[in-house]
Design a protein around this nucleic acid. Sequence first.
RNA 1: GUGGCUGUAGCUCACCAGGUAGAGCACCGGAUUGUGGCUCCGGAGGUAGCGGGUUCGAGACCCGUCAGCCACCCCA
Length: 426
Amino acid sequence: MTTYRAIRGMVDILPEETPLWQSMETAALEVLSSYGYSEMRLPIIESTDLFARSIGEVTDIVEKEMYTFADRNDDSMTLRPEGTAGCVRAVVQHNLAVTPQRLWYMGPMFRYERPQKGRQRQFHQLGVEAFGVATPDQDAELIAICRQLWRRLGVDDALQLEINNIGSADDRARYRDALVAYLSQHRNQLDADSQRRLESNPLRILDSKSPDTQAVLDGAPGLQDYLDDTTQSEFQVLLGYLDALGVRYVLNPRLVRGLDYYNKTVFEWTTEHLGAQSTVCGGGRYDSLVETFGGKATPAAGFAVGLERLTLLMQALDITVSTPADLYVITADENAYQHSLPRLDALRRQFPDIDIVQHLGGGSFKSQFKRADKSGAAWALVYGEAEVAAGQVTLKPLRAEAEQQTIPDAELEAFLAGYLATAQSA
RNA sequence: GUGGCUGUAGCUCACCAGGUAGAGCACCGGAUUGUGGCUCCGGAGGUAGCGGGUUCGAGACCCGUCAGCCACCCCA
């Protein structure tokens, strides 16, 4: 008999973890709604060309990490490695860029990389994209949203904002020439990857982890010196907004990011709790992407949150979310079970917020109580032979040291209403 | 894609000059024929990731493969 495993890098999210995911998703929905952002639901597959053009032909993602295949019509398709390209495509296609647009989406992304902690081949991102606003108040709003989300989830203290200004495409082209000119003189002091990038993607050499390369970079020209005055002053305005918000940040002049479409502001939220995969959220401005895709020139900015990494961080901080039942229903025999059915049906309709789990499969009271205990339920609701005969039920507290009580069945509604009230105030 | 480490019961791990496996926790049952959590007793569960090789004999050694982890790389 063959046994199957999930294929490499594809991870099952099991019931034990889903409460954490749900709490994260709920927090995201509420925070984004509170800032006036609307949800988009986008295809997972787009034409290969869309990603190559937006992310950049010589980026790692496009060169070696995409899940690309020919469909039955022999067109080249790709499982999305990130969300911005598809979102911008949809915005252009449906003419959504005409007014200020605040959007978000959540879902799986695919990159063919070697898996390790915090890095999977299928992973999930929350993407937030805003169109039509060129001024730094937009950048500030996006960062404020991040921080609000971190606070909601209890990870605020564990994340650090790194931010940089990488200027316009023209600025970077001029800087690139100067950087290449400088680094070429020290070519043999660079690590192998960086030597290769000298031709392909020189800016990425900036955040090389090689100490030798970093030593060479200490004497390199700085990108900041190649940015025009407007860009520089806009960035200062943004930093002022962050100060006003009380968002602490670290200026990182070597933060460049690996996707070609970014310009001006780029930022990352990083943590020390996740080892090498330390970036939980990354984003920035991409003012020319809409035009690249054939839309009217529209400034834009956004960010993406790695949801697996966020859950990993929450787990590292011992943030737990569990959803035990409120009531576990125990019945003595077939007659009691049948007696309980219409009652539970009515209670569930009247109290949709109360979780009522019924014991299935029979068994002794003892084994049913064991199950009740393990379920984590707050109360056991017992329909025994005597209770059914007398029109009563027994309620036994499973989490508190208190006596069980037997009450008329008809008083259950009142009991549950009281239970709800105390649960909500607690 | 590169390098290193690991792979024994559901989980965490052990044993062993190479002689076909054991503990704790979890699970099931009983002590308690209407009551969980504590305790005690009992039980079930593994062809030692998979395939091949060396050997009289391998979970232990070798090779391959798959998977996980760590680092590089990269990013979420």
